[in-house]
Nucleic acid binder design. Structure first.
Length: 448
DNA sequence: TTTTGAGTTGTTCGA
DNA sequence: GTCGAACAACTCAAA
């Protein structure tokens, strides 16, 4: 009888279209492992809650065989290898700065025992580092990256392999990660549910280009958390797309995800520092008054209804519509003059889909410090954005209960209709816009 | 090597 | 109300 291999799950919590699992299954019986790593204790409760649900669903799909082990992967993985007599550990690549350090350390520890850590594929349509210019250099601009990304193409999805699981209860299991307390219910985070969610969304993809910007409408797939945890693979979505505007726009969003992962792969330090070094000279506010402004932003008490609706949606559901993410980010950076890192950290703490590459490079884009930086004069008007993308005010009324009685689009700029319970605007947007432009102009002038 | 065209997501102002 | 220009300068990618 052949010796088992270990399939170490991290952020590919599914059975279908998981090339690493095919590789493992080809080696014989498979011990399915998830390591509850103390390094993740700092992750936000919403993300941990989704993880727990997704793991539960994964465990169910393998009839309870999933082996949870608590501890540092450099200790836990080699220990399990010795325990079950495995000859190889299979993983799907994890390209984040932490994931790469961890995997290098685990690979080194395993090597001492003559065991290999084999990485097959990744949670991206095209793995980070593999879309390059003809001379091998990485792309720094999205559009040319996306052209080559499309040209490179991607493999067809694989069905779940036939696996002989060798796990709990025959192998000792520590039990799932501890439950975290969140103010909302996750309606299941498993593979089956994600697929049916995608099937329900698929007929709407043709309208995606038009409806994706309307936060009151379910015009987006809402599969961000499933993609973040690898409950679905982007290949599986791309395989269902057809020619057409909405479909192309949706594919582009998946390309953005791959692009930001690629940027972070090549420059891991840009998770928390400016990609564009010249922007280090840009003055930002970090004093006590700045911290108070941040607090109002985080709690959804800015007095700008569209911004407050978004911030409250985030706290209430662990998710925020993409259009609104851009608006609240612009507000934090350009109206409040705070460091983008403060906003990025808050998002990572509260989003179920918090992904370091997409989140932090999205923030850098909004702040004008990242790739394809928006021209500095591109400052979102928090009232105008609401009027344009929430024309009936439905989204604002849904999340800002104080304004529930204000009719139509008047809700975006309540003026005389503003009830006492809702705060007045915390800043004068026109004045802060000028201030932001002044700071950017000053930074540009200083760098010459 | 040099040149050229282009670059996610916007706003304001004045005609 | 609509429309086009202005808002900067720079870097990137490819011809």
């Amino acid at each position: 009888m052949s010796r088992p291999s270990i399939m170490w799950f991290r952020r590919d919590l599914r059975l279908a279209d998981l090339p690493a699992l095919h590789a493992a299954a080809a080696d014989g019986p498979v011990v399915p492992l998830f390591v509850v790593d103390p390094a993740f204790r700092g992750a936000g409760a919403p993300r941990q809650a989704f993880l727990r649900e997704a793991l539960q669903a994964l465990d169910d799909s393998m009839n309870g065989a999933l082996v949870y082990r608590h501890g540092h992967p450099t200790d836990v993985v080699p220990a399990l290898v010795a325990e079950v007599g495995a000859t190889v550990v299979h993983v799907s690549r994890d390209d984040g700065p932490y994931g790469r350090r961890r995997d290098a350390a685990v690979a080194a520890a395993l090597q001492q025992a003559g065991v290999r850590l084999v990485a097959t594929s990744s949670p991206y349509a095209v793995s980070p580092g593999t879309v390059t210019k003809p001379d091998g250099a990485p792309y720094a601009v999205f559009t040319p990256f996306s052209k080559r990304w499309r040209a490179a193409g991607w493999a067809a999805p694989l069905a779940a392999p036939d696996v002989k699981w060798l796990g709990a209860p025959d192998v000792h299991c520590d039990g799932p990660p501890p439950a975290t307390s969140v103010p909302f219910t996750l309606l299941g985070a498993g593979e089956q549910r994600a697929h049916s969610q995608w099937q329900q969304f698929l007929p709407k993809v043709a309208q995606y280009a038009a409806t994706r910007n309307l936060p009151a409408v379910h015009g987006t797939s809402r599969l961000s958390a499933a993609l973040r945890w690898g409950v679905l693979h982007p290949r599986q979505l791309l395989a269902d797309l057809e020619p057409g505007e909405g479909h192309d726009t949706f594919a582009s969003e998946l390309a953005w995800r791959d692009f930001y992962a690629d940027v972070l792969h090549h420059q891991p330090h840009t998770a928390w520092t400016n990609l564009n070094k010249a922007m280090d000279a840009m003055p930002v506010d970090t004093d006590g008054a700045a911290r108070e402004r941040f607090q109002r932003w985080a709690e959804g008490r800015t007095g700008f209804p569209f911004v407050d609706a978004g911030m409250r949606e985030l706290l209430a559901t662990g998710w925020m519509h993409n259009r609104v993410r851009m608006v609240v980010a612009s507000f934090l950076v350009k109206d409040l003059h705070l460091p983008w890192q403060w906003g990025a950290r808050h998002f990572m703490q509260h989003l179920v889909d918090g992904d370091l590459a997409s989140n932090n490079h999205g923030w850098q884009w909004a702040a004008g410090t990242g790739t394809d930086a928006a021209p500095y004069f591109r400052v979102f008007n928090p009232i105008g954005q609401g009027e344009r993308f929430d024309p009936d005010g439905e989204y604002v009324r849904r999340w800002v209960s104080e304004l529930a009685a204000v009719p139509g689009k008047a809700v975006h700029d309540p003026g005389l209709l503003r009830p006492d319970s809702y705060p007045a605007p915390m800043v004068d947007h026109a004045a802060e816009r000028e201030e932001a432009l002044r700071r950017y102009r000053h930074t540009t002038a200083g760098s010459r």
